[in-house]
Design a protein around this nucleic acid. Structure first.
Lengths: 307, 307
DNA sequence: TCATTTCCATGAAGATTTTTCATCTATCGG
DNA sequence: CCGATAGATGAAAAATCTTCATGGAAATGA
């Protein structure tokens, strides 16, 4: 039986990666090793424990009940370990992080949580670059970026929030909607964001045309959006939406609070919402800055926790 | 700077061992490696962090403020990791532990905490051997023993409770004590324990004779103890002590509750209490039984926590 | 002050562990 | 039955740890 005190840390990280990616191959890719290495490592862990942690099937590896029970504890513990060590390192070296985020993400999600970070790590200086400029990851520039789309090649990409895209309106407007062709009933709101709101609406419309049957077919959505007023910011658009002045196309985490408080409601609920994700992007060496590593850990823990 | 994601687990355990033993050499002995290995490992960790974790001095290594801050987090995290992994292993293999403890330790310290363990690990069967027999660590026998003294050679020894030995009495008796020679004022209680109570008293008396000046000198403590009634158990002796029937020589963790509740008070507080420790003893391979490993972890965490 | 002891540092060699390469097995969908 | 996907396996290569053999610095005591 296991004669070593504990399995090595990388093996445990591999275990987490397999659970999270759902397959040896994908875990290997994520960690930057070969599938062979992952297989050996998991064999080592399973040998130590004395039982299987995964059921291997055609489409990857599903955790056994034992593996599923083990994962949260291991993941949480490793995260604590990382945080403690990064914090120690941060306390004697670089003490600043530069983060690039979009205005809507900043105002709707990040702003309310940031005080928590500042309280936990008062010595770390946070530089927030709020805007739609493409982040400059060269040394002295941006450490981490929170972006909606995918990363350029050469960047690490981690899912921060697995969001959905859907349409909201004020509760009053929602109640007044005609049974079909609701989409013609009110303006389709837009704002001067990075992603072209008009194209977003068009994409949404194309994707759902099947979903709501003929309701929206033969509807010139581009013109409909163009005819509506353009707001300066996401926040202003959302305010208008709350006032019942039209529909807004949003991502779930940006409106979680408004929905929880009943100020906004989802429309077209019969439409399958499109999955989109806010990703955390950074160059592979970014976490050598311990403050950046701490901020990343904090972000991921915030994204996991409720609120 | 640190290019590895995290320092290896054994290095962190070494770090904890240095903090806890207060020196590289002692840590090496405890881990079962050479001092050289400890030095290299700590150099690795300090390199990763980028700063010193210990001040090396003439009598060992004292943690720097940074090291002192880091230690609780690391120790707690490693302990969680161990527990999670041992639990996983226990859930598919051996599910029983045999523990040897003394009657007084069982009744005064362990009994009230045991329900917590049973609740956390309902599948594990606990075999308690309560008594003063020397534990038989051969396979099929005792896994772990909680003992007051030191281990035989070949056994692992871990401090469970860093206790102190002192004298208590009921509050009433304490108030009535004459200013000097208090020790002659009431019977010195004893019980039929493993350690010879008479010898304990004698040792205590010799140790303190300086401490309380001439108060107890030329006092035949052996006869005084012999003249007092011998109780069948520690619990009975303690009950008599609570009733004000004499002094009892005790270890702090056995009377923590009585003292907290004001049923007993320390006497001769001007005497420096003697340090004694309840140790956890086991053969090196005992923790291969995951249930034993879990019980050990639980014991250590209980010993650290208040109550 | 000088030898002595205690404790940690250092570098190269040796031992161990981890990762890869090349190859193999099992299962699923046509 | 073929081809494709997902993992397993064993030996070799690469990387990492541990030890051995010393060295150095700071306190102890004659």
């Amino acid at each position: 039986m296991g004669k070593r005190p504990l399995p090595p840390l990388p093996v445990l990280q591999t275990f987490c990666a397999i659970v999270e990616t759902g397959g040896f191959g994908r875990a290997a890719e994520r960690i930057g090793q070969t599938q062979t290495a992952i297989s050996h490592q998991l064999a080592q862990l399973e040998g130590w424990i004395g039982g299987r942690l995964f059921d291997r099937g055609r489409n990857g590896a599903r955790p056994t009940p034992l593996g599923a029970r083990l994962h949260p504890a291991i993941a949480a513990t490793i995260s604590e370990l990382e945080t403690a060590l990064y914090q120690a390192r941060a306390s004697i070296s670089v003490r600043s992080v530069a983060v690039s985020v979009s205005p809507e993400f900043s105002s709707q999600w990040l702003a309310s949580r940031l005080p928590d970070f500042c309280q936990r790590h008062p010595a770390i200086e946070l530089k927030m670059a709020v805007g739609y400029q493409r982040p400059d990851f060269r040394p002295g520039g941006i450490d981490l970026a929170i972006w909606l789309g995918h990363a350029d090649a050469g960047l690490v990409e981690e899912v921060l929030l697995a969001d959905e895209e859907f349409v909201v309106s004020s509760p009053e407007l929602s109640k007044r909607l005609p049974p079909r062709n609701a989409i013609r009933a009110a303006p389709l709101l837009r704002y001067a964001g990075m992603s072209h709101t008009i194209l977003d609406w068009q994409r949404w419309h194309e994707q759902i045309t099947g979903g709501i049957g003929e309701a929206g077919a033969h509807f010139d959505i581009i013109r409909a959006v163009e005819n509506s007023e353009q707001f300066e910011s996401f926040a202003e658009m959302l305010e208008a939406c709350r006032e019942g002045r039209g529909f807004a196309l949003v991502r779930s985490s940006l409106v979680a609070r408004d929905i929880a408080e009943g100020k906004l409601v989802r429309c077209f609920v019969e439409v399958q919402p499109a999955p989109v994700s806010y990703n955390l992007l950074y160059p592979p060496n970014a976490l050598e800055n311990p403050s950046a590593a701490l901020f990343r850990n904090w972000l991921l823990s915030q994204a996991r926790s409720p609120g």
